[in-house]
């Protein structure tokens, strides 16, 4: 309880000081607004549904991209983890493509797909492939060798080997990979929206800024922060429930 009090002390004090200062100085600013005004703006954005539509657009793009990119990354990761020679053959190709910052693909996606969901999903997918690929590959490589011997002794077909042995054995760490990729997906989605795509939370916060509505802009900022925090906390909780300590192994990659 004391810990929670200490954790809250700093933000609460800062907000209070800022509120009092903003009121006493009769703050009129394009970039700052007292916390009470921000809360009011958040409330009205909820009331007229604008924030819900924007949230839906952003989350849909982020999750669609996560699903698409994550699936590609998972398939490649399992393939490269199981077949060492293929991994070595693809090494240079992967090392050449991976460092391209996802946002650099934005102009390419823009001319190929135009504005909208598809372009955003394509960029999010690209960003999500790599963490999943690398963690899944490592997870598959470190599967207990005796499990693979069992698979060989049972003469399982390659498909069955992946379905019955590899995926269940690597599942906790695959989940970790998807958890990290989910955070990246949200970040990339919001970034694409802020940079150029006229949908979702990123576009909404840019519109609030351009309309010089500091209170609404900060309300969106806080909401985006809450979504990021909620996503992270929810996935962490799920990981703990589903896998317990199994997923904690080497979580820090």
């Amino acid at each position: 309880m004391a810990d929670r009090g200490k954790a809250l002390a700093l933000p609460v004090t800062l907000l209070l000081v800022f509120e009092i200062w903003a009121r006493s100085a009769h703050l009129h600013s394009d970039s700052l607004a007292p916390p009470s005004a921000v809360l009011a703006a958040l409330w009205s954005a909820f009331a007229d549904g604008a924030i819900l539509t924007a949230t839906r657009d952003t989350l849909m793009s982020a999750f669609a991209g996560l699903f698409l990119g994550g699936s590609i990354g998972l398939a490649l990761g399992i393939l490269l983890g199981l077949l060492q020679p293929v991994d070595r053959l693809m090494e240079v190709t992967i090392e050449a493509i991976r460092p391209i910052p996802s946002i650099a693909l934005l102009p390419i996606a823009l001319i190929a797909l135009g504005f909208g969901y598809r372009m955003e999903i394509a960029i999010v997918s690209f960003a999500c492939i790599w963490p999943v690929l690398i963690l899944a590959r490592a997870a598959v490589r470190e599967i207990e060798p005796r499990l693979m011997e069992v698979a060989r002794a049972l003469k399982l077909s390659p498909a069955d080997r992946v379905r019955k042995i590899v995926i269940p054995a690597a599942l906790p760490r695959i989940f970790v990979a998807f958890r990290l990729a989910a955070g990246i997906a949200l970040i990339v989605a919001v970034t694409v929206e802020i940079a150029i795509n006229p949908i979702g939370l990123g576009a909404a916060i840019m519109a609030a800024q351009q309309g010089l509505q500091a209170d609404l802009m900060l309300a969106y900022l806080i909401w985006i922060g809450l979504i990021g925090f909620g996503l992270n906390a929810g996935l962490n909780l799920m990981q703990g429930r589903l896998f317990g300590r199994a997923a904690l192994v080497r979580d820090r990659t």
Binding site: I224, G225, G228
Partner: peptide, 26 residues
């Protein structure tokens, strides 16, 4: 650490690009 670290952990998952509009306003 006990006072500041929890606030920082709370801010960490924030997609940092969301600060861009605020920075533009400032």
């Amino acid at each position: 650490r006990s006072y500041v670290a929890p606030s920082l952990e709370f801010l960490r998952p924030l997609p940092v690009s969301a600060i861009i509009p605020v920075a533009i306003a400032m």
